[in-house]
């Protein structure tokens, strides 16, 4: 599973990046437009949702629970400083996917109890895409978290995030992580569509 997360790019607009991801075969998109007023996100979200629907892709919006509800997007992703997961679940009910960011097993367990549907776990390594990040996890960190989840019977899908490149994918999935979320690796590629294809193929070839 590969989740593409949009990110501000000087030359590639948000919608263009969504088109690139879909054309490259990615079927899970998170529209993330940090520091953008919700009024400006709305028209982009509507169009991104249309593109995802046409491609049969799952469409998640970062942070904006009310917008997700209004547009009937597939779900929302909540970071550490966004609305708590339990509160989002109360607002959205059961018909929406809720993802939560975790850095530790304790975060994972808390999100699980609060009713999250999946975990975005990271950062794998230091990244310039996000500021104010928690300490890096590396392969060892993921192995530790996956092991504890199994011990406690927490069968929540978990995707790795944070500075991941194609070369990292096989080893990350071998730790028992279910999927990969990334942004910069696609946007910075010389041929972003081809890079997406390669990344999708890599995640599928290394299924746990």
């Amino acid at each position: 599973m590969l989740q593409f997360i949009t990110h501000y790019h000087r030359d590639i607009g948000y919608l263009d990046s969504v088109k690139i991801a879909l054309e490259g075969g990615c079927r899970w998109v998170q529209l993330r437009m940090k520091s953008t007023p919700v009024g400006e996100i709305l028209p982009v979200a509507i169009e991104a949702q249309r593109l995802c629907k046409a491609a049969g892709a799952t469409f998640i919006i970062d942070d904006h629970v009310e917008l997700v509800k209004e547009l009937h997007a597939d779900g929302v992703h909540l970071g550490k400083n966004d609305m708590p997961i339990g509160e989002a679940r109360r607002v959205l009910g059961s018909g929406f996917i809720i993802g939560g960011t975790a850095n530790t097993f304790e975060d994972v367990e808390r999100h699980y109890r609060a009713g999250a549907d999946y975990i975005g776990c990271g950062p794998f390594r230091f990244t310039t895409t996000k500021t104010n990040l928690s300490p890096v996890l590396g392969l060892e960190g993921y192995g530790h978290i996956v092991e504890k989840m199994r011990e406690r019977g927490i069968g929540l899908p978990i995707v790795a995030i944070g500075g991941i490149t194609a070369d990292d994918i096989p080893a990350i999935l071998q730790t028992g992580i279910d999927g990969i979320a990334l942004s910069g690796t696609i946007l910075r590629a010389a041929d972003p569509v081809e890079e997406t294809r390669r990344l999708v193929a890599l995640t599928e070839a290394n299924a746990g």
């Binding site: 590969l2 049969g56 799952t58 009937h72 597939d74 999927g179 290394n206 299924a207």
Partner: peptide, 19 residues
């Protein structure tokens, strides 16, 4: 499984509901 708000992957490949 509900009609909406669910995503499924088989052998790590996301499968759209239509498929």
């Amino acid at each position: 499984l509900p009609e909406r708000g669910v995503a499924v992957a088989v052998d790590n490949k996301m499968v759209p509901r239509t498929e």
